[in-house]
Measured scan of single mutants.
Amino acid sequence: MSIQHFRVALIPFFAAFCLPVFAHPETLVKVKDAEDQLGARVGYIELDLNSGKILESFRPEERFPMMSTFKVLLCGAVLSRVDAGQEQLGRRIHYSQNDLVEYSPVTEKHLTDGMTVRELCSAAITMSDNTAANLLLTTIGGPKELTAFLHNMGDHVTRLDRWEPELNEAIPNDERDTTMPAAMATTLRKLLTGELLTLASRQQLIDWMEADKVAGPLLRSALPAGWFIADKSGAGERGSRGIIAALGPDGKPSRIVVIYTTGSQATMDERNRQIAEIGASLIKHW
């Protein structure tokens, strides 16, 4: 067993022997301040990774656009098919120029040779490549099948209805392509620590998230040296922004954090800054 596999296998073990965790309302004060600064709703939840206990939450059962955070769930569904012998990570998928959609920095470079399922998941999570996500959605049967996968996990809230990039439209009061912070946090925890996926697939999923290259201005910008984070960000229309993450000190994750916002007129930089400040408060009061 590799060191990384050992780390993920012992996530519940280490967490069980940690000192009790206590909620700190100071972080919620910052979440509410972010709402004021952005002029928009902000949803927040913080779960203990081992027990699933909610440590703090704000608007945990209000719907927010998922945006690209759905790509972690998508690759979880792909990995479940791999575990069941219905898919192979090494299978190569070929596609054409007509398949390319807006923001496809990886797939646009491989029109000639195609990409493997493993490479597509890596591109979808680490670079948020939209064509990679659409190609992977095709392998599982489309958005409705991802929703069905989530329902089978016990998540009857999260739903995907459309493809990239239309799913980022974020129309107010439109339930399409949305989740709730509580539902997303619980589902992410199941994917990373539950028995739904094999140990190898859980490790692969967290490795992809740990290698995320496009979430630097968010929670990662607030992390002290030595902290662990595996995350996936999302951005959408109407001032929408979000991030889902597993993080913790001492090089291992111990909490799940989900943050979503929508309806702001603020710039992307300002949305990023507010999420980073929430992260800084979380870490300060850990």
Rank of each mutant, 00 (worst) to 15 (best):
A9L: 09
I11D: 02
F13L: 12
F17N: 08
F17A: 10
V21D: 05
V21P: 05
L28A: 10
E35Q: 08
E35K: 03
Q37K: 15
Q37H: 12
G39N: 13
G43I: 00
I45T: 12
E46K: 10
E46W: 04
L49F: 15
L55T: 08
L55I: 13
P60Q: 13
R63A: 07
F64I: 02
P65G: 03
M66I: 10
M66W: 01
M67A: 14
L73P: 09
L74N: 01
A77N: 13
R81F: 09
V82L: 05
G85L: 08
Q86G: 10
E87G: 05
Q88H: 15
Q88A: 13
G90W: 11
R92K: 12
H94N: 13
H94Y: 15
Q97G: 12
Q97H: 14
N98S: 13
P105T: 06
T107Y: 01
E108F: 08
K109Q: 14
M115V: 06
M115W: 02
L120Y: 02
A133T: 12
A133E: 00
N134I: 04
I140T: 06
I140Y: 08
L146P: 00
F149C: 06
F149A: 08
D155M: 01
D155F: 01
R159G: 04
R159D: 06
R159Y: 06
D161V: 07
E166I: 13
L167E: 03
N168A: 08
I171F: 13
N173H: 12
E175P: 14
E175T: 15
E175F: 12
A182K: 14
A182G: 13
L188N: 02
L191A: 06
L192M: 15
L197E: 04
E210V: 14
E210S: 10
E210R: 10
D212C: 04
P217K: 15
L218F: 04
R220L: 03
A222I: 14
L223V: 13
A230I: 07
A230R: 01
D231P: 04
K232I: 00
G234W: 00
R238M: 14
G248Y: 01
P249G: 05
G251I: 07
S254V: 12
S254F: 08
V257G: 01
T261A: 09
T261S: 09
T261K: 03
S264I: 04
A266E: 12
N272P: 01
L282S: 06
I283Y: 15
W286I: 04
